[in-house]
């Protein structure tokens, strides 16, 4: 159960949002610059909210009153970045194994993980890519590698920042289905940020419409439906 109330002052407006979410895919939907990515960064521990409280299950990640702010590395929250942020100097294999504790025998089964490295790579259909560098992958492949890398450490929450915006329409639809499947398999909450109505429709179990950092019950904002999936940079 993700329980978060986040307040954060930005130059143009202030974020003030409450989230309660258990399992499934929560979509934060809003125009560019509505504070979506900042919310994800606060959840992940990459930015510090100015107030509020973030808990996941029993664990407290951030609490302004108690002065708690768990660093990102200790939160075990998976994060798929907008541009995937794959390490360009490492092969797919090294990218995917980056989050596992170092050592010659990275046998996940022995350490009590649910899925072995092989199973994770198989699920995402990237096992044949393991010796390639990110620059040699297509957009869809990169996205799968980024997902595998984030899931490999078996996070308790997965954050996705515009995960499909850089892909063309056909791959996007395939990956939408896969993403949904993945969530059903892993049974952890996914929080996904998008400004694309298609993605909202295809993926959301629950949705929060964001406008200038605040949830809006009636979405007054609609982006014109673009087929090309033009990438827009958000805050």
């Amino acid at each position: 159960m993700l329980n978060a109330s986040i307040r954060k002052e930005l130059p143009a407006f202030a974020i003030d949002i409450d989230l309660q979410f258990d399992n499934g895919i929560l979509v934060l939907f809003g125009p560019s610059g509505s504070g979506k990515s900042t919310i994800l960064n606060c959840l992940a521990g990459l930015r510090k909210p100015s107030g509020g409280r973030i808990t996941l299950g029993e664990r407290i990640f951030f609490c302004q009153q108690q002065g708690i702010n768990v660093p990102a590395r200790s939160r075990r929250i998976g994060y798929v970045f907008q541009d995937y942020a794959l390490f360009p100097h490492m092969t797919v294999k090294d990218n995917v194994l980056f989050g596992l504790p170092p050592g010659p025998h990275r046998c996940k089964k022995k350490r009590g993980y649910r899925m072995s490295v092989r199973e994770t790579l198989d699920t995402l259909k990237i096992i044949h890519l393991q010796d390639r560098y990110p620059a040699q992958l297509s957009g869809g492949e990169r996205q799968r590698v980024a997902l595998a890398r984030a899931l490999m450490v078996e996070p308790e929450l997965l954050l996705l920042d515009e995960p499909l915006s850089a892909l063309d329409n056909q791959i996007r639809q395939t990956l939408q289905q896969e993403l949904k499947q993945l969530q059903r398999t892993w049974q952890i909450p996914f929080v996904l940020v998008t400004h694309c109505p298609h993605e909202l429709e295809a993926l959301a179990d629950q949705v929060i419409y964001l406008e200038a950092g605040r949830p809006n019950l009636q979405p007054t904002w609609q982006q014109p439906l673009t087929e090309s999936g033009v990438q827009t940079v958000s805050v």
Partner: peptide, 15 residues
């Protein structure tokens, strides 16, 4: 160096 790569490493448990 793209700052998001460093951020990614942090979310993957690196100090």
């Amino acid at each position: 160096v793209d700052a998001s790569l460093e951020q990614a490493a942090r979310t993957l448990g690196s100090n």
